[in-house]
């Protein structure tokens, strides 16, 4: 990562130009050759700094109108064993262990599920519940009712 990589990130974090030769257009914007843009983007991709390049859909607009953040209070000595199994369920799109914020928030395992209806999401939550078994002491599902912002990363120029 150097200043040129940083300039590349600032130039592309909002999206790629919709022109025939987008990498060349970016090169013109930041003052390097298109070939250099492609070489650096490939290096950022190989290094995991770029997770992927492509389309980010609005879930609601493509039919996934129920989006539930399922949250679980899982015994501390079981969560690291069970977390990967929850993450491996085909319908879970993200899964993390996070700290509790007691007393307001007892949950330490988060897993996002999506569906065309809340019934579909709650059926998926039941599968997670079954997998967690006795290690789960409490759970909830927080449905999103509005996207307030979805711009993604924005670092300063």
């Amino acid at each position: 990562m150097d200043e040129i990589d940083r300039a590349l990130i600032v130039a592309t974090q909002g999206g790629l130009p919709l022109v025939a030769r987008p990498y060349h257009t970016i090169g013109e914007q930041i003052g390097i050759a298109g070939e250099e843009v492609m070489r650096r983007m490939q290096a950022l991709l190989n290094g995991g700094i770029i997770r992927r390049i492509g389309a980010v859909p609005n879930h609601y607009a493509i039919g996934w109108t129920a989006n539930g953040m399922t949250v679980w209070d899982v015994a501390d000595d079981k969560v690291d064993e069970l977390g990967p199994l929850v993450g491996a369920l085909p319908f879970v799109t993200h899964s993390y262990r996070r700290p509790r914020a007691l007393p307001a928030w007892p949950y330490n395992l988060f897993a996002m599920v999506h569906g065309s209806s809340r019934e579909e999401c709650s059926a998926k939550a039941l599968e997670i519940r079954a997998l967690l078994g006795d290690a789960c002491r409490a759970n909830d599902i927080l449905y999103s009712t509005r996207i307030l912002k979805k711009t993604g990363l924005r670092i300063g120029a």
Partner: peptide
Amino acid sequence: KVLTRFGPMYQI
């Protein structure tokens, strides 16, 4: 707004 973005997703 079917897509919110098209391009690289950075892992900061």
